[in-house]
Amino acid sequence: MRRGSHKLSRRLFLLLLYAVLTAGAVVMVAPFLWMVSTSLKAPHETFMLPPIWIPEDFRFENYAEVFDRLPFFRFLLNTATIAGLVTFGVLLSCSLTAFALSRLRFRGRDLVFYILLATMIIPAPVTLVPIFAIMRRLEWTNTFLPLVVPAFFGGAFPVFLLRQFFMRIPRDLDEAAVMDGCSAFGIYWRVILPLGKPALATIGLISFMGAWNDFFGPLIYLYSIKKQTLTLGLATFQGYYATDWHLLMAATVIVTLPILLAFLFSQRFFVEGITMTGIKG
């Protein structure tokens, strides 16, 4: 009798959980649907009561109009270029550092590691003004260089994660490689990089996403329209057409779609990668 009621309450509890989770899921998805819906509306339909979720006819012209008003395709190319180069730079420089910090033995190694760890507490705004001044002096403003070049000089967080991962690769492999006449660089190139692929993929994904979604960097460095990225282009578009909601939402869809598609195709990988970085302690 007791067991029976226990089971029943367990079922009710589960039902309640599903109800709550589904309601939450609706709250998460509805804004996206509203975005797409608005982007396909005629202007007057955006101001109708009660709200229309499915427009009379789908005005794909809105998208054409967005591309007419600002070069969003160009923004897409610029963003992909920057994000690709940043990812490459981070992977290259951080894997070199992490390799030295995890597989080589030399004096001062641990000191370098602790200094690097300590730099994690320095918030980015602290170095903003001098770095901007340097970039301006180098005449790098309004080019991709200020956004891309620093990525080739390592970074505390990716190095930390890669080092953790590299340390778990058996040391015997290094020694076997040495027997075969490998130099340190050979070990890095032939042993550590291939075996470190999962960690490198995670770091690559995070770097790519970070660069793709970055707004502040492009905002202060890129000012001519042709040089802008998707996020900055969206801000520019909003600046011009603040209340043309149908166009603004079409632009927002254009900016959001690539990353959503990427997510759909690599979902599990995304979530696992993020989990790995979250539980770093």
Binding site: L92, S93, C94, L96, T97, F99, A100, L101, L104, V112, I115, L116, T119, P150, F152, F153, G154, G155, V159, A184, Y188
Partner: peptide, 9 residues
């Protein structure tokens, strides 16, 4: 190996 990172720091 550390050169890029140290230079960056």
């Amino acid at each position: 190996f550390l050169a890029p990172q140290l230079l960056g720091l």
